[in-house]
């Protein structure tokens, strides 16, 4: 794989997102944070920080997920639909390189978006608390976990985008996202069942579905609890592995697709 070609395609994908005014969602995030910071000062006693952290991280997660899904499902499909792909694939670009470039382009967009929203969250924390505390470092871990989730979601959306329409891709990605949030509950449900086939099925689903539940530390970091290093390492490795498998699947589907 030619890393330079991947970087060129990734940069253009990021540029497309910026030109399409995707980062305008930051304005809504900023307004939300400013309003929340002003309001909690008036209505809550002693829990301003908790509210700001919960609200801020939830907003970063929702805004990022919406962006990952809706941009992700169009990453390849839009290129096919608009036939920009015809010129791209007539260049010395392998289909695998194209897929990797599109993925990293959206990953850069999400990274910039998440970073800027994090700056907004920290500013709001500074406003309500007057200072940053040691436990705020855990908030950064929360942000990192949200970003890992977005990387997973992007991979899934991109894989769908290689063979399905945007509507089907959106439904599929959101379906997997919801199922992934509850994957622990699915396994628990299976263990409560006395049917061995059901147990095998739920165990299989637990391992195959993306486990989004393990990334949710918003409540813990809101209460100032630190996140264990093992969980950080585990989630990072899990994301890298899952994204790699997803991208290999996406590249395999895309490499065998006729561009009618």
């Amino acid at each position: 794989m030619n890393a330079v070609l991947v970087a060129v395609i990734a940069w253009n994908t990021f540029r497309e997102a910026v030109r399409d005014r995707v980062l305008y969602n930051l304005v809504f995030f900023a307004l939300l944070m400013i309003s929340a910071a002003i309001l909690v000062g008036q209505i809550s006693i002693g829990i301003e920080r908790l509210i700001i952290v919960n609200l801020g991280l939830s907003a970063i997660s929702v805004f990022g997920a919406v962006m990952a899904v809706f941009l992700g499902v169009g990453l390849v499909h839009k290129e096919i639909e608009r036939r920009t792909l015809y010129t791209m694939l007539s260049k010395p670009v392998r289909r695998t390189e194209f897929i990797a470039g599109k993925y990293f382009g959206l990953a850069i967009t999400l990274a910039v978006n998440t970073l800027l929203m994090t700056v907004g969250l920290v500013t709001a924390l500074l406003y309500v608390d007057g200072t940053l505390r040691r436990e705020d470092a855990a908030v950064m871990t929360g942000v990192f976990f949200i970003f890992l989730q977005l990387l997973l979601l992007t991979g899934i959306a991109l894989a769908f985008s290689c063979f399905a329409t945007p509507v089907v891709s959106t439904l599929g990605t959101l379906g997997l996202y919801l199922a992934g949030i509850f994957s622990d509950d699915i396994r628990t449900f299976g263990s409560l069942s006395e049917n061995p086939a059901m147990q095998r099925l739920t165990t299989f689903l637990y391992y195959v579905l993306p486990n989004f539940g393990q990334f949710n530390v918003i409540s813990a970091v809101g209460h100032g609890q630190s996140v264990p290093g093992a969980l950080i390492a585990g989630n990072t490795a899990y994301t890298l592995l899952y994204v790699t498998v997803t991208l290999i699947a996406a590249a395999a589907i895309f490499s065998n697709r006729n561009m009618k």
Partner: peptide
Amino acid sequence: DTSMHREIGFLPEAPYFYDYL
């Protein structure tokens, strides 16, 4: 052979390019 594409150029019918550029 994708590397052969270095030596060819292609203009598709009714071409569409990245119009934000």
